[in-house]
Write a protein that binds this DNA or RNA. Structure first.
Lengths: 243, 243
DNA sequence: GAGCTCTTGATTGTCAACAATTTGGTCTAC
DNA sequence: GTAGACCAAATTGTTGACAATCAAGAGCTC
């Protein structure tokens, strides 16, 4: 009974990525892509910093070829900007960029929730409910820490996959997902919405269970819109007011 | 009075792309990207066909380096699939893929219309209205031929740009836009929706003019959903029934 | 001293050769 | 005759060297 959710909960973020692109790291450029991506997301390479090809190639122990390819993939992923004959640099996520990102997220994940209500299998819905229960326990024990990060990602991830739309899944999980991860690494100081998120997730599951696409979409959009508003409030006010 | 719209109407599709990425063709790999992209979209390289690197490099008169880079960009654009150590091949757009594409389009362009209703300048709205009038005249004179192709793109393009969301604009105009172009080149036989599209565009402009985001979003989503349904009907029925 | 031009250094873009992997065919064993 | 292993050709992945372009600083002119 508890087995089926173990393989969801116990997986860290990296492992989850590999399931989406299982053979990207068989090649050198694939490994470099992941390594460089994580270095950027975790801030080991600062936002706005220039990506010097010879230096990074030395650093990752590869030639400039695979490194350039990795950079190009991160450009497509919008983690890196590139200007011809000038070079590549890590994107700087201003507040405006995050707001734009969350508007796109609202549109895409809203549709994903609607499609999930239509297409998700009963088995996957059951798994989702168990997942939420695990998160609820974690939240009670660890004062809401877990829910904010990987737990929230897991939940949204499962719903997106449940939409059955591969294009939608790729766009959200392979591209925008990493941008959000990068943002969260940069600003880990915004107000916890753990309890509220749990309630909203609860309602969302109910809508999916009832096979109500419109309600599921509305709930997901409001959920993301509130997260967006929360971020804006936190980042526009001085940091001292948030205690 | 007629000047401001000339620079919209008289531009072919290629020129419009260059405005989005003005300096992509300064470099060899950029030129190769565009050339290969157009060859794929226009069907000069058949769907499913393998992209042989030495052959294509010879064909485009470049080395394998820039060609590989072009391929990678088209992979990010979802026009090409790539399997490590096996190679790249042109995507095959099945009906399911188009349906998925239009679901994503519905979500993104719906949000774009809502944002356009909020953010579009009065000047841009006026230009949009003039653009629609030009299309109406073209449609009356040429029996609805123009509207189906570039005219429709122009209209949607302006609204997307009017959203003011750069991420949204990039995703739609730089990536999904080319997938739709490819699909239209492959199947140019589906039922004309010219008159209906004109009416729906009319209503959409009205909603934007009234600064009504919710209505604009609903109208745009219905507009795209109807186009999706029309495509499904045409492609699932035998071709002889469409006359 | 300010502004311009030229030059130099560094960095990116491109190329051609080398290495590694896959695929298709052939041969052998059962 | 079929299944499996092995071999060879073709293709992709990778490398290091070369060419083109840009940015910064020195020197010169006004």
């Amino acid at each position: 009974m508890s087995k089926p959710i173990d393989d969801i909960v116990d997986n860290p973020a990296e492992q989850r990525d590999d399931r989406v692109q299982p053979d990207i790291d068989k090649t050198l450029s694939g490994q470099t892509t992941i390594a460089l991506r994580e270095a950027i997301i975790k801030g080991q390479i600062a936002p706005g910093e220039k990506l010097n090809e010879p230096t990074l190639a030395e650093q990752f122990q590869v030639s400039r070829g695979p490194l350039r390819e990795a950079i190009r993939r991160l450009v497509a992923m919008r983690l890196v900007r590139h200007v011809p004959h000038v070079g590549a640099s890590v994107v700087t996520l201003e507040l405006d960029d995050i707001m734009e990102l969350y508007d796109v997220r609202e549109a895409l994940e809203g549709k994903a929730a609607a499609l999930a209500a239509e297409n998700m299998s009963e088995h996957d819905i059951a798994k989702l409910k168990e997942l939420l229960e695990v998160h609820r326990l974690h939240s009670e024990n660890n004062a809401g820490e877990y829910m904010q990060t990987e737990g929230d990602f897991d939940f949204h991830y499962q719903i997106i996959k449940g939409s059955g739309n591969r294009l939608l899944t790729d766009q959200l999980c392979d591209e925008l997902y990493h941008l959000i991860r990068m943002f969260r690494f940069q600003t880990s100081r915004f107000k916890s919405r753990s309890n509220r998120a749990l309630i909203e997730h609860d309602q969302l599951i109910y809508a999916i269970e009832q096979r109500d696409p419109q309600l599921a979409e509305i709930l997901m959009r409001k959920h993301i819109a509130r997260a967006k508003a929360s971020i804006r409030d936190t980042l526009t006010k001085p940091a001292t007011e948030n205690q």
